[in-house]
Design a protein around this nucleic acid. Structure first.
Length: 585
RNA sequence: CGAGGUGUAGCGCAGCAUGGUAGCGCGUAUGGUUCGGGACCAUAAGGUCGCAAGUUCGAAUCUUGUCACCUCGACCA
């Protein structure tokens, strides 16, 4: 490819919209162009990179006997009604009518299509297990896209679906897929990534893992133990909270005036937040009358994902403000009406001498003893983990890092096969619902992740396996006839020799060429100039290490192929190794 | 959906308080001198000032509405 013809200009300055590094670099290097919020055009280099990542994913899926298929983007309402998701999914799924006024939708995931396919083509257990996958554009009308390619509305995704006769077989396959994901992320050159147990959420099923790239710009919080290998998404993370023992005392009302916040209370009564219980009010979605009040220790926060699980209902922070409960302000544990579900966190179990709301304006209760004053109360874990808490496994100290989700795998079980009434014959001729697993990777997010992680002050530093071009020729002084001739010769030799090559054929200053080459991030830079050609040599510089040396012009192809082979081997041969993640800073 | 911010040339910005018909840098085009780390000189092209309505003799500037984008939050299959 000739750089002079390449669409997508390089800029010194980042577009106003770009705030995070991966977005800034991809935009400045001319890889992406925003069209609308969360909607981007990928230029040739980005598309080539995407293609290389997709091919690595294909290779790994094919190693697990995956069959590549292509499901439709547009599906009819009826198919999604069979799983119940036509109604359960919100506005992020685009719905529209076709010309005959038929309800249609854009597929944001393809469990229904996968079950539809297998249900209509497989009828006996002897055909299982099998896995089908696709690489396809997905559109999700995200409420808030952000961070360039990190969170977008339209993106290419690999989604895979496996079908099994038994739970054990699915679990075995899941383990293989778990491993394949490590291979994929290692091969595309990611470094600080890790798998964590996750909340299976509305996907159903019991076991799920997310793969996270650890980076401060990530939108997920990940809890790690500094001593053992415990790690989990904040949504499901558990911890042991240090208990502070306060002296028990008789229960009594205290006048607290308009002190409503934990802070106010602490100042007024001269106590710490740990000695209070705070109430957070939630409304059950779809039933405005039903309230859930969660109590946690004053210094802690409610983990809504855990709370949802505890009450088995979908909830949202209550914003009504009209109920007596709210206007009163000082919400306590005693004297709440039956419509209210009370959930109390483990952190309050056994606590004595606490201060809680009195359910009475301007008053709180002092000396609250959870064992004595709250009979028959169930306690459960609904508090967020804090850095410094104790590990639930080994008691070591926990830390929290942010991460970008780059892939996920789910053990779906029979959620979809049951809902969609998919049955096949077992060995005894009986019908059963096959067991499913599903597995996703966002390709665009992988590109953003690589950009976020692989760069220096000059620009992108792309891994050999995914770089759009392997070599980037900077021809200096193209007005020099010898340079022009030799450059063309070199470019042809490399291309014919199977090297993916970008040629900067513009007759401009060296500084601009070097700056563009550094920004675009190809692993090998080759300089052709009068200086080195005088010795019949070219100059090779490795982007990652800045290592630079000359080789005879005639050896260029051999040398470049040697570097490529070594780099490819480095990334591919270590694909099985889990990266060792050490705390950053 | 809630809070805040920004919309002026391809990109980054100034101008707006106190209204008088738009400017800078980068990039682009042409010519010349340079040219191994974002060169210099000269000339030139390029703008419905997000959109709409209003106030006014006159609006990028004031008022109202609206749209888009960004950040934080809610949400995230």
């Amino acid at each position: 490819m000739l750089l002079s013809k390449l669409v997508g200009e390089r800029t010194k300055e980042a577009p106003q919209d770009a705030k995070i590094l991966s977005h800034i670099l991809l935009a400045r290097a001319g890889y992406i162009k925003q069209v609308s919020g969360g909607i981007y055009t990928m230029t040739m280099p980005c598309q080539k990179m995407s293609g290389k990542i997709q091919n690595i994913i294909r290779e790994e899926m094919d190693r697990l006997d995956g069959q590549e298929v292509l499901f439709p983007v547009v599906m009819p309402r009826e198919l999604w009604e069979t799983s119940g998701r036509y109604n359960s999914i919100g506005n992020e799924m685009v719905r529209f009518k076709d010309r005959t006024n038929h309800d249609m939708l854009l597929g944001m995931t393809h469990e229904e299509a996968a079950v539809h396919l297998v249900n209509h083509t497989v009828s006996t257990y002897t055909q299982l297990p099998l896995m089908i996958y696709q690489l396809q554009t997905k559109f999700r009308d995200e409420a808030r896209s952000r961070g360039g390619l990190i969170r977008v509305r339209e993106f290419t995704m690999k989604d895979a679906y496996s079908f099994h006769n038994t739970l054990e077989d699915m679990q075995d396959y899941y383990a293989k897929m778990y491993h394949a994901y490590y291979r994929i992320f290692n091969r595309i050159g990611l470094k600080r990534f890790i798998d964590i147990k996750s909340d299976s959420g509305m996907m159903g099923g019991s076991v799920a893992h997310e793969y996270m790239l650890l980076t401060p710009v990530g939108e997920d919080s990940i809890v790690f133990c500094n001593h053992c290998d415990y790690r989990a998404n904040m949504e499901v993370a558990e911890s042991v909270k240090e208990k502070v023992n306060f002296t028990g005392e008789p229960l009594q009302e205290v006048f607290t005036g308009d002190a409503k916040t934990i802070d106010d209370l602490c100042k007024l009564l001269n106590i710490t937040a740990k000695q209070t219980a705070k109430a957070v009010v939630y409304a059950v979605k779809g039933d405005a009358d039903k309230l859930v009040v969660a109590f946690v220790r004053g210094d802690l926060e409610v983990n809504e994902a855990k709370l949802k699980k505890a009450v088995q209902q979908d909830i949202a922070v209550y914003e009504g403000g009209t109920s007596d409960l709210i206007t009163c302000g000082n919400i306590g544990l005693k004297g709440l009406n039956d419509k209210i579900t009370v959930v109390v966190d483990n952190s309050l179990q056994g606590m004595r001498g606490m201060v809680v709301g009195a359910n009475k304006p301007e008053y709180h209760l002092k000396g609250f003893d959870f064992d004595r004053d709250l009979s028959n109360q169930q306690f459960c874990d609904i508090a967020k983990v804090c850095a410094g808490d104790k590990c639930p496994v080994c008691g070591g100290e926990l830390r929290i890092e942010n991460g970008i989700e780059i892939g996920n795998i789910f053990q779906l079980g029979t959620k979809y096969t049951k809902a969609m009434n998919m049955t096949i014959h077992d060995i005894n001729g009986n019908l059963f619902n096959p067991i499913m697993g599903c597995y996703g990777i966002g390709v665009g997010r992988a590109i953003a992740s690589i950009a976020q992680e692989s760069n220096d002050e000059r620009g992108l530093v792309l891994p050999m396996t995914v770089a759009p071009w392997q070599a980037h020729i900077c021809a200096l002084r193209l007005d020099d006839e010898n340079v022009a001739t030799k450059t063309t010769q070199l470019y042809n030799t490399l291309c014919e020799g199977g090297v993916d090559t970008l040629l900067d054929d513009r007759n401009i200053g060296a500084g601009v060429k070097f700056a563009d080459a550094d920004l675009m991030g190809m692993p090998i830079r080759i300089v052709v100039s009068p200086k080195s050609l005088a010795d019949d040599e070219i100059e090779i510089t490795l982007r990652a290490t800045k290592e630079s040396y000359r080789v005879p012009f005639a050896n260029a192809l051999v040398e470049v192929k040697k570097i490529i082979a070594a780099e490819m081997e480095k990334l591919n041969n270590n694909a099985d190794i889990m990266p060792v993640i050490t705390p950053q800073d």
